[in-house]
């Protein structure tokens, strides 16, 4: 197998449910050993794509090749190498942490010694080694997700598919989670992750922005930021809503995003816009403490790119 060739290659995938196309002509490739993020709003087709890759949902048209295996025609062969963790990992709540791990290990015929070594390592990494005999039903949401990840990783997959693994998980658990993912990447596991948290998207090697079953942009986070038309200004103000009301529609302003301590504004030209916006706010009597050029976050980029798509459509 050529190490440089993409490990996942999806071409022109389409999946319709009744009248709506959940996934509409999706094509992308994932390189060996990278963390690839699928980002998009609810209903963009992230879960449907994941299920098709996992071999449990046949696409209407298109092809999926995972590590040389045609997953559409031979889904069972792909399952040996793929580990799929859905949004809600199916744990047996009446079984203990250890019993759940053992069950999933046995399904993949993992030898007992290997299982024990891996379980220990993964549970230690996620801070759960003292809960091994606790019933899964009595774990917190974050611990359940970490146990799910442990179960999903107890066999050595080449590709890990994670569907919104950190939704509803506390920040500490999320950090543990990402630490484990980085560790896996070092071991050569390719990771495909969907997320609605855009700060997490920045942690990926490459990102695909998904909207209405199509990929709008697919690139590294840095390159995506450069694609953002215009520049970002950060206006600090205790009255974000009033700021937005005062500057929407001003010449050169294309996008206004409310944030906690003010607004982010996407503008054509920061040099002319900074004084103009300052004047506009003063005229409107809106209090603000500063207008400076800022580094766009992936959220700014995403919202801005989505807005542009809406306008061109």
């Amino acid at each position: 197998m050529n190490a440089a060739a993409p490990i996942v290659s999806a071409k022109a995938l389409t999946k319709r449910f009744a009248e709506t196309a959940a996934v509409d002509g999706l094509s992308f490739t994932v390189n060996r050993g990278e963390i690839f993020g699928l980002v998009g709003p609810d209903g963009a087709g992230k879960t449907t794509t994941m299920r098709m890759l996992a071999g449990v949902l046949p696409p209407d048209t298109g092809s999926i090749v995972v590590d040389g295996i045609d997953v559409v025609s031979k889904p069972e062969e792909g399952k040996q190498h793929i580990s799929y963790m859905p949004q809600r990992f199916g744990l047996y709540e009446d079984l203990t942490v250890d019993e759940n791990i053992r069950f999933y290990a046995d399904l993949f015929e993992v030898a007992a010694g290997v299982r024990e070594e891996r379980a220990q390592r993964l549970l230690t990494a996620s801070g759960m080694s003292q809960f091994r005999s606790r019933l899964a039903g009595q774990l917190s949401g974050g611990m359940k997700q970490k146990l799910g990840l442990t179960c999903a990783l107890v066999h050595t997959p080449k590709i890990l598919l994670l569907d919104e693994p950190t939704t509803g998980v506390d920040p500490v658990s999320r950090r543990d989670f990402w630490r484990i993912l980085y560790g896996l990447r070092e071991q050569g596991v390719t990771i495909l992750i969907t997320t609605a948290y855009l700060d997490e998207a920045e942690r990926c090697n490459r990102l695909a922005l998904l909207h209405a079953g199509r990929i709008l942009y697919c690139d590294t986070p840095v390159a995506l930021k450069q694609r953002m038309p215009g520049a970002l200004l950060v206006i600090s103000s205790p009255a974000g809503r009033k700021v937005r009301a005062a500057i929407v529609g001003q010449a050169g302003v294309s996008n206004v995003i409310l944030v906690g301590d003010g607004v982010h504004v996407v503008v054509d030209d920061p040099h002319t816009c900074i004084p103009e916006l300052g004047d506009a706010l003063q005229r409107a009597g809106v209090p603000f403490t500063g207008i400076v050029a800022g580094e766009p976050s992936i959220e700014d980029v995403f919202v801005s790119l989505l807005e542009n798509t809406g306008k061109t459509q």
Partner: peptide
């Protein structure tokens, strides 16, 4: 019951 609990999806993605 397994279908509703989501464990069936997990079983389906295994080589069983």
């Amino acid at each position: 019951r397994e279908r509703e609990a989501g464990t069936l999806e997990q079983i389906m993605v295994s080589p069983i």
